[in-house]
Design a protein around this nucleic acid. Structure first.
Length: 393
DNA sequence: CCGTCCTACATTATAGCCTC
DNA sequence: GAGGCTATAATGTAGGACGG
């Protein structure tokens, strides 16, 4: 298996994509999952079907999805043929997978250069499936002419492990709805009564606990122990962006269309991560206690609203008009630093400043020990020395 | 002035349709 | 039948009117 990986890796590391990597230097924020549709002419995969519409007489062709495990069976890759027709076969391929798991066997860390991950995954998956890729399709991949419908952005924040559950508890208490808490060490926000939001959601969890008691057979190697140790030092936050979210976020980024892979060369991935993360107001789950000086800034009415909130009455409930409520939230936040827009019922809270904890400066980078090993698959620019195998068609 | 509500506009959520 | 797409509903934001 090592052999196969090395061979494929050698062939894969040669794309002339340095510009993409330069725009997204290693910040520690990385891409954990992608769902893409790429041009790729091939024979349809999986179960095939066709049916005729009784009214129009039109014949529709379809192909089912297949789940394929590349390498050691850890990294599931979901593949489906798209744009199926009898004459031409399938003209596009949908792939849903976790690029770090496929390329380096785990997803404790990774990189943020989408174009590189997309090309490497497309190349790897079509090889495994035995698809002969047309040069024009491959050229489209190189140009980033691939449609993105889902992406997960992930960061591990340095955090003492015994604080993870108390912080998740506080976040739990400051959100009354749209949440799911199956495990003490795991929670998701951004759900709707009908399921997940079509925009985005965020998951907070303890990565070491998620990896299970011992993901590797004992005794572990030096690098496997390194992975476990690294996972245990971080508080994991995943932002999942869905098609609707990609669309609406595109507007705010000055018209950069996030559904086009090529456009990610101009996207500041860590900034995007925090832009969405901030919408959940997680840092306000544990709030600072305002000073006396700050309290005296409040006008009598504002003080009353604040006191009511401390007693568990949400600001929205205190006013019939949502505009007025929002206005009070804003002014109290400015004067005291406390966001009374979130629900609050927790009495005992962990003593941490979540604004510092969940900041870019506190994101864990790829550990030095992993660099230049098979446990870290870097953006291809880092392997520019392999450039001579670039033209492999 | 101060506090509240109204209105217009922006953003986000929901639901039903369409495609494969 | 799952998931993306799109029209519509719900909610949030900001400027201004109005009565105290």
């Amino acid at each position: 298996m090592k052999q196969a990986k090395a061979t494929l890796g050698h062939l894969l590391l040669a794309q002339p994509l340095s510009a993409y990597a330069i725009c997204n230097p290693q910040s520690g924020v990385f891409i954990d999952r992608i769902r893409i549709t790429a041009p790729c002419l091939h024979r349809p995969l999986g179960n095939q079907a066709e049916w005729r519409d009784a009214d129009t007489g039109l014949v529709t062709h379809a192909a089912g999805g297949i789940q394929q495990a590349l390498e050691e069976g850890h990294a599931d890759v979901y593949v489906q043929s798209k744009q199926v027709s009898r004459e031409l076969g399938a003209r596009a391929i949908l792939i849903d997978c976790c690029p770090p798991k496929v390329l380096q066997g785990h997803n404790v860390f990774g990189h943020a250069v989408l174009q590189d991950y997309v090309y490497e995954i497309l190349d790897r998956v079509t090889r495994v499936l035995g698809i002969e890729v047309r040069p024009e399709d491959r050229a489209m991949w190189r140009a980033g002419n691939v449609h993105l419908t889902q992406i997960h952005l992930t960061a591990n924040f340095t955090c003492p492990r015994d604080l993870i559950v108390p912080i998740i508890d506080a976040v739990d208490l400051s959100n009354r709805s749209g949440k799911q808490r199956i495990l003490p060490t795991w929670m998701t926000l951004g759900l709707t009564p009908k399921g997940r939001s079509t925009y985005h959601c965020v998951t907070l969890y303890d990565k070491l606990a998620e990896m299970g008691p011992y993901p590797f057979p004992w005794p572990t190697t030096r690098y496997q122990r390194m992975l476990l140790a690294e996972a245990g030092k971080g508080f994991r936050v995943e932002i999942k962006l869905y098609s609707q979210g990609l669309k609406s976020l595109s507007k705010g980024l000055g018209g950069i269309d996030l559904e086009g892979v090529a456009n990610w060369a101009r996207v500041d991935v860590p900034a995007l991560f925090f832009h969405v993360f901030d919408k959940y107001e997680i840092v306000y789950a544990v709030q600072p206690v305002p000073t006396t000086a700050q309290i005296t800034l409040l006008k009598p009415k504002e003080l009353g609203v604040f006191a009511n909130w401390l007693l568990g009455r949400s600001v929205k409930d205190q006013f019939s008009n949502r505009g007025t409520a929002g206005r009070y939230v804003k002014v109290i936040l400015e004067k005291t630093g406390v966001n009374v827009g979130v629900d609050r019922r927790a009495e005992v809270q962990p003593s941490v400043d979540l604004r510092t904890l969940f900041s870019l400066a506190n994101v864990r980078p790829v550990p030095d020990l992993a660099v230049r090993t098979r446990y870290y698959s870097p953006p291809s620019v880092s392997s520019a020395t392999n450039a001579e195998v670039g033209a492999n068609e």
